[in-house]
């Protein structure tokens, strides 16, 4: 691949699909998976720019983003399991106790 413009375009498309997923879905698991899609799109842009500038730092940042994403998934899914225990549901609309 000599030019990275198509890769950045793909990254933008994937990020947009992830954003629309977060905004439209009401299930916590589906929202979480859409967030993962957005993280993936950002990683793709990082690697593409690392290739464009001939700099290894972009790839190392992707490595750290993956470590943080793994930690985030572990804690986030534990939270969803804990919420499911009390609510018997993973719909985010059910969590409205704070509404005045």
């Amino acid at each position: 691949m000599t030019s990275i413009e198509p890769v950045i375009l793909l990254s933008a498309v994937l990020f947009t699909i992830g954003v629309v997923g977060v905004l439209t879905r009401r299930n916590a698991l589906m929202i979480f998976m859409s967030v993962e899609l957005m993280l993936n799109a950002a990683n793709l842009a990082f690697v593409a720019f690392a290739q464009q500038w001939g700099n290894l730092d972009g790839q190392l940042f992707v490595f750290f983003i993956m470590a943080v994403a793994a930690a985030e998934v572990a804690v986030g899914l534990a939270l969803i399991v804990a919420i499911f225990r009390t609510k018997r549901s993973t719909d985010v609309d059910e969590l409205s106790q704070l509404k005045g």
Partner: peptide, 21 residues
């Protein structure tokens, strides 16, 4: 990461999304 996702979905029995979704 995705094994964890599939595991939690099956553990909770949440694969059929509700009407609210």
């Amino acid at each position: 990461v995705m094994v964890l996702f599939v595991f939690v979905i099956m553990l909770l029995g949440a694969e059929k999304l509700s009407q609210a979704d």
